[in-house]
Computed example of a mutant assay.
Amino acid sequence: MAIFRTHEVRQFSDIELLEQEQKLSLELMQERGKVGAGGATEDPGRIREIRRTIARIKTEQNARRRSA
């Protein structure tokens, strides 16, 4: 899954935002599961980037709700 920047997130439709959030949440859960099971992730900074991308998506969703 790709990491999206703020300007990319703003270009998504509401449905795309929801889909991307769900995909990233699943990926985050899988990465945390690997670490919790004692394994090492391929990219240690990946969890942080996924969390930040989810936060960007949620921020955009909230902004759209307020302006509607």
Rank of each mutant, 00 (worst) to 15 (best):
residue 1 M to R: 03
residue 1 M to Y: 07
residue 1 M to V: 11
residue 3 I to Q: 00
residue 4 F to A: 01
residue 4 F to Q: 02
residue 5 R to A: 03
residue 5 R to D: 00
residue 5 R to W: 13
residue 5 R to P: 01
residue 5 R to K: 13
residue 6 T to V: 14
residue 6 T to Q: 04
residue 6 T to H: 09
residue 7 H to M: 05
residue 7 H to W: 11
residue 8 E to H: 12
residue 8 E to D: 02
residue 8 E to I: 13
residue 9 V to G: 00
residue 9 V to Y: 00
residue 9 V to K: 02
residue 9 V to S: 00
residue 10 R to Q: 04
residue 10 R to H: 04
residue 10 R to F: 07
residue 10 R to C: 03
residue 11 Q to P: 01
residue 12 F to L: 11
residue 13 S to Q: 04
residue 14 D to T: 07
residue 14 D to W: 11
residue 14 D to K: 09
residue 14 D to L: 11
residue 14 D to Q: 08
residue 15 I to N: 01
residue 15 I to T: 03
residue 15 I to L: 01
residue 16 E to Y: 12
residue 17 L to W: 04
residue 18 L to T: 03
residue 18 L to R: 03
residue 19 E to C: 04
residue 19 E to S: 03
residue 20 Q to W: 08
residue 21 E to C: 10
residue 22 Q to A: 08
residue 23 K to F: 13
residue 23 K to Q: 05
residue 24 L to W: 07
residue 24 L to E: 01
residue 24 L to M: 06
residue 24 L to Y: 06
residue 25 S to G: 12
residue 25 S to R: 14
residue 26 L to F: 08
residue 26 L to I: 10
residue 26 L to E: 01
residue 26 L to H: 07
residue 27 E to T: 09
residue 27 E to V: 14
residue 28 L to K: 04
residue 28 L to W: 10
residue 29 M to N: 08
residue 30 Q to F: 13
residue 30 Q to W: 10
residue 31 E to T: 02
residue 32 R to H: 06
residue 33 G to S: 07
residue 33 G to A: 09
residue 33 G to W: 06
residue 34 K to D: 02
residue 34 K to R: 09
residue 34 K to A: 07
residue 36 G to I: 11
residue 36 G to C: 05
residue 36 G to P: 02
residue 37 A to M: 12
residue 38 G to R: 04
residue 38 G to I: 04
residue 38 G to F: 06
residue 39 G to V: 10
residue 40 A to Q: 06
residue 40 A to K: 10
residue 43 D to Y: 13
residue 44 P to V: 15
residue 46 R to K: 10
residue 46 R to F: 15
residue 46 R to E: 01
residue 46 R to S: 05
residue 47 I to L: 12
residue 48 R to W: 15
residue 48 R to L: 15
residue 49 E to Q: 09
residue 50 I to W: 09
residue 50 I to G: 00
residue 50 I to V: 08
residue 51 R to K: 12
residue 52 R to M: 11
residue 52 R to P: 01
residue 52 R to A: 06
residue 52 R to W: 14
residue 53 T to D: 00
residue 53 T to L: 08
residue 53 T to Y: 05
residue 53 T to E: 02
residue 54 I to A: 07
residue 54 I to F: 10
residue 54 I to R: 06
residue 55 A to T: 07
residue 56 R to P: 06
residue 56 R to H: 11
residue 56 R to M: 12
residue 58 K to Y: 02
residue 58 K to N: 02
residue 59 T to Y: 07
residue 59 T to G: 05
residue 59 T to M: 06
residue 60 E to K: 13
residue 61 Q to I: 15
residue 62 N to R: 14
residue 62 N to T: 13
residue 63 A to S: 09
residue 63 A to Y: 14
residue 63 A to W: 14
residue 63 A to K: 15
residue 64 R to G: 08
residue 64 R to L: 13
residue 65 R to K: 14
residue 65 R to Y: 13
residue 65 R to D: 04
residue 66 R to D: 04
residue 66 R to H: 13
residue 66 R to T: 14
residue 66 R to N: 12
residue 66 R to I: 14
residue 67 S to M: 12
residue 67 S to E: 02
residue 68 A to N: 07
residue 68 A to E: 05
residue 68 A to Q: 10
